[in-house]
Amino acid sequence: MKLNLNIVPLSSWLNTGKEPLIISGPCSAETEEQLLATAHLLAATGKVSVLRAGIWKPRTRPGEFEGIGSIGLEWLKRAKEETGLPTAVEVATAKHVEEALAAGVDILWVGARSTANPFTVQEIADALKGVDIPVLVKNPINPDLALWIGALERINNAGITKIGAIHRGFSSYEKTSFRNEPMWDLAIQLKAIAPELPMINDPSHICGNRELIPYIAQKALDLDMQGLMIESHIDPSVAWTDAKQQLTPAALAELADKLTLRKADSDNPVFDDQLATLRTEIDKLDTLIIQKIGERMKIVEKIGTFKRDNNVTILQITRWDEIVEKRTAMASALKLDKDFTVKFLELVHNESIRKQNEIMNTKPSVEV
């Protein structure tokens, strides 16, 4: 499957000559002084390509600071005039789009909460018809690739060809070190079906704290993402929103200096030959693994038939616990990650249950 989007290359609408591409600025525009001071410091680093700022900030609960509102667009306009940095803001309604365009904002982005609601995305798309402006679409809060794709399609169908995606992580019931789980596999799936789609990583919202940002930023670049959106504040300790995940401009510059940029392809024939040889070995092993899983499922079908004929339930927890315990111990000895092993076993187990369930609901053939 390939996603059919009408897209122009990122280099044709945002070619600043800086690598990696960094979009940065405060989570929220709080005061004119705060925004201008942060903007000047970011511009002085020479690392930032685009200045971002939150103007409208719908929060999870009412009563918290929800953005300075339209006046912040005038501050952003002045910051652009004084620093020369193009600007970017989040829009969540048609009115936001109209006001941002009137203020000369250069790039718009659709936030995670908006992406999750097709009605909201369509309202934004309708407001963008006939407009030539870059639009970035964040992944939805929940891990739903179809919603992300749908939002991109709606914006693209409105005639926006300067379009990109922002990977900002996903909400998860499981509590980990991250504010939002990266779930890299979903971002990789989107890149696989839309390889021409620019993808920006948002380590600030993935991490929720500044300490983890360097790790996520580097991993995103290693996965061939085109840039980073990182929140920066002149003094994060007094930020009105998301204080823990914002960097000072100086810390941002230090982070940028430490990032390693790697090429998507090699121009070394020796490297290419060696890589091709190793990939051939991988292909052989993958084929063998799939064959063995197929053989395993044949045995599962026999077990399903045996259980049906003897009126025994499909799921037997003690057996499943035994499998997990023994296989993870073996995987650990082979230096395989435990989480990966458990997820793999769960996938195989779920398919085994599905096959047995089919057999359970099929009447045995009667011999005559």
Rank of each mutant, 00 (worst) to 15 (best):
I107M: 11
W109Q: 12
V110P: 03
V110C: 04
G111P: 07
G111V: 07
S114G: 13
T115I: 02
N117D: 15
N117H: 12
N117M: 13
F119G: 02
F119N: 14
F119K: 15
F119I: 13
T120H: 12
T120Q: 14
T120L: 15
Q122M: 15
E123R: 14
E123A: 15
I124R: 03
A125R: 03
L128C: 10
K129R: 15
V131M: 13
D132W: 07
P134M: 11
P134G: 11
P134Y: 11
V135A: 04
L136A: 12
P140F: 05
I141D: 10
L145V: 14
A146D: 15
A146Y: 10
W148I: 01
W148S: 00
I149S: 11
I149W: 06
I149C: 08
A151N: 10
A151E: 10
R154F: 00
I155E: 06
A158M: 11
A158I: 09
A158V: 12
I160W: 00
I166P: 03
I166M: 10
H167W: 02
R168C: 12
G169T: 08
G169W: 05
F170V: 01
F170M: 00
S171E: 08
E174T: 11
E174V: 11
E174D: 04
T176R: 09
T176C: 08
T176E: 06
N180C: 02
E181F: 04
P182R: 01
P182H: 01
P182M: 01
M183C: 04
M183N: 13
L186G: 01
I188F: 10
Q189N: 08
L190H: 04
K191P: 04
A194C: 15
P195G: 08
P195Q: 10
P195A: 07
